[in-house]
Simulated assay, not measured.
Amino acid sequence: MSRHSSKLAAALLSTAVLTGVGGAGLAQAQPAVPPALAALFDSGSAALGSSTEAPAPDAPRLASIDNFRDVAGTGAGYATADGGHVNKGAFYRANAIVPNEADMATLTALGLSTVYDLRTDDEVGKKPDVMPPGVTYKRIPILSGNIDEMLGKIEKPDDARKMMQDMNVAFVSGTVEKAKFAELFTELANTDGGGQVFHCTAGKDRTGWTSAVLLTLAGVDQKTIMDDYLLTNEYVKDSVAKSIAGLKAAFGDKYVNYIPLVTVEESFLQAGLDEMAATYGTIDKYLTDGLGLSTETIAKLKAKLVD
């Protein structure tokens, strides 16, 4: 590994900015977000989903787990193609689960059944989850490829974007990734009890793909799915500002080359969705032919997602 990629990996690890790499604590400085990033942080909408009926309670906003949210969205839950809504309280997505005292009490009150940690051993070692009482913890690490080698090739922002796009393509086509996602979706389908949570380090890439697959299976339209994906930029904008400060301290003006690694952009998820469409055609074919899920498992997932 080159000296440059070693320095970059260390900076990313120290600021916890790259979901696939993991990290320790965020940089302590809290500067204003650079103006060029304002558009990124304004992506998505927190008001997606509405209903004239009394909706189920929205997922709470957690200060210590800032990307924690209900896969179904807010209000009545995201609308589906058949006129229904995605069931709230069934599946939650998150970043690393290290709650403060108040957030621990909130998580406990949700009556969760299981947490699936998608991080690598290094990521978990730096920031292990802390579980609410009675919640089952399961590890399904999802990551492959030489991250240091990929980081060492970044010389401009578009290189970083290409890295994130390739990561999402690998979620669909990578042998290791497919096996792990198959395990995850099988567990989500077959585990009974309260709500289930899946997460990685930042809750944006592996977690974002998982959520997009579930929403696609539920029959949510692609624009809503993309808007939901981009909500990460809104939920974690304070953490991203800290991460960018760490990158700027480490790399000076070159920090802009790495900004795509700490946010989400439409092209990242779209690369995975395009790969799925080109290779399998439909979500069901991706789940059956790509991941090897049985029709019974897919039916169980659908039943949990929509009534």
Rank of each mutant, 00 (worst) to 15 (best):
S144A: 15
N146E: 12
T175I: 06
R206S: 12
F181I: 00
T175N: 13
E183K: 09
A212E: 00
S173K: 11
G208L: 07
T136L: 03
N190K: 09
N190W: 04
S211Y: 07
S173P: 05
G193S: 06
I142P: 02
T201Y: 04
T216C: 00
L188W: 11
F198R: 07
T186E: 14
M163A: 14
C200F: 10
I154M: 10
I147Q: 15
A170M: 06
I142G: 01
V176W: 07
V197W: 03
G152Q: 11
S173W: 05
D159L: 08
T201I: 01
F171Y: 12
L214P: 15
V197H: 05
T191V: 05
N190A: 05
V220Q: 04
S211A: 15
K204N: 13
N190T: 12
G219W: 01
F185M: 01
K204I: 07
K153S: 15
N146V: 06
D158C: 12
T191R: 08
A182H: 02
I147A: 15
S211F: 03
M164R: 15
A170W: 13
P141N: 03
V172W: 10
T207W: 07
A189I: 04
L184P: 05
V172P: 12
I154G: 11
R161N: 14
K156G: 06
P141F: 04
F181H: 00
T216L: 00
F181M: 00
N146G: 07
K180V: 01
F185E: 00
H199F: 06
E187Q: 06
D158G: 04
D158N: 14
T191F: 01
T210M: 07
T186N: 02
I147K: 10
A189G: 11
D159R: 11
Y137T: 02
V197E: 04
A202T: 12
K204A: 05
V172L: 05
T216D: 03
G208N: 10
T186K: 14
C200M: 11
D158I: 07
V220C: 09
L151D: 15
D148H: 09
G219V: 01
V220K: 01
P157T: 12
L188T: 09
F181E: 00
E183F: 01
A160P: 14
I147R: 12
G194C: 01
D205I: 11
V197A: 05
D205R: 06
R206Y: 09
C200P: 13
F171K: 12
K204T: 14
G203F: 05
P141S: 08
T201L: 02
A179Q: 13
G152P: 05
G194F: 01
A218P: 04
A202R: 13
V172C: 14
A160L: 10
